[in-house]
Structure formats: structure tokens, C-alpha cells
């Protein structure tokens, strides 16, 4: 069975928003360790929204470095409409970019 690694995001929020890229890059390093161990990642968005910069630094960069397949191993839990909109935008945009780069 694939084990799941849970990342509650609310502790990184100021008020309800997680904003800065720098916050995401340190978090991504922990995510990369768990991914390398074969785990699935659960991002728990309970009570938080995130900027596009934050989501891009966390998920956009994972897509650019591993390809869109990485999304099969990421779970987005308890997202608000706002968080979901940003995740969908970043994922689609970076997948599209990845495919274009690698089709040349």
C-alpha cells in the first residue's frame, strides 16, 4: 500500500492567506523527500487560501521538474473555491508549458 504524507498548510498562513514563494520553497524540499520515498502527498488546505506565487513555487515547480505525471501522486484536501481555482490554474499552465518544452 502506498503511504500518505500529510502536509497541513494552515500553519504557514498569515490570517487565511499563504503568500510568499519563500515559504513554498522550503516546504517543497520536505515534499520532495517524501516523494523520493515513494509516498503520496496530501496537501491539507483547511481554512487557507493561497496566492498563485505560493502554489506555483510548490506545485508548479514540481510539475516543471518531474512532468505532469507527478500530479497523480498529489492530493489536494479541503480546498476552498479560491484555493482550488489557483491550483487548477497553476497545474494547467505548468503542464502546458512542460509539454511544449518537451515536444521540441
Amino acid at each position: 500500500m502506498i503511504t500518505r504524507s500529510n502536509f497541513p498548510l494552515s500553519k504557514y498562513a498569515y490570517g487565511h492567506l499563504i503568500g510568499a514563494r519563500a515559504t513554498a520553497s522550503s516546504l517543497r524540499e520536505q515534499v520532495e523527500v517524501a516523494l523520493a520515498q515513494g509516498q503520496e502527498i496530501v496537501f491539507d488546505f483547511s481554512g487557507v487560501d493561497a496566492t498563485q506565487s505560493f502554489i506555483d513555487e510548490l506545485i508548479g515547480v514540481l510539475i516543471l521538474s518531474n512532468g505532469p505525471e507527478i500530479l497523480d501522486r498529489l492530493v489536494f484536501k479541503s480546498c476552498s473555491d479560491n484555493a482550488r481555482a489557483v491550483i487548477e490554474f497553476v497545474a494547467a499552465d505548468r503542464c502546458d508549458q512542460f509539454v511544449k518544452i518537451h515536444s521540441h
Partner: peptide, 15 residues
């Protein structure tokens, strides 16, 4: 957010 150029290539896993 700006409109997307392309359809998402992957289903996202929301729970």
C-alpha cells in the same frame, strides 16, 4: 487569473 491556453492534461485529485 488569466484564461487557460490549454485544457488541463491531467485530472487533479481533490478530496
Amino acid at each position: 487569473l488569466p484564461p487557460l491556453d490549454a485544457q488541463p492534461v491531467r485530472r487533479l485529485r481533490f478530496e
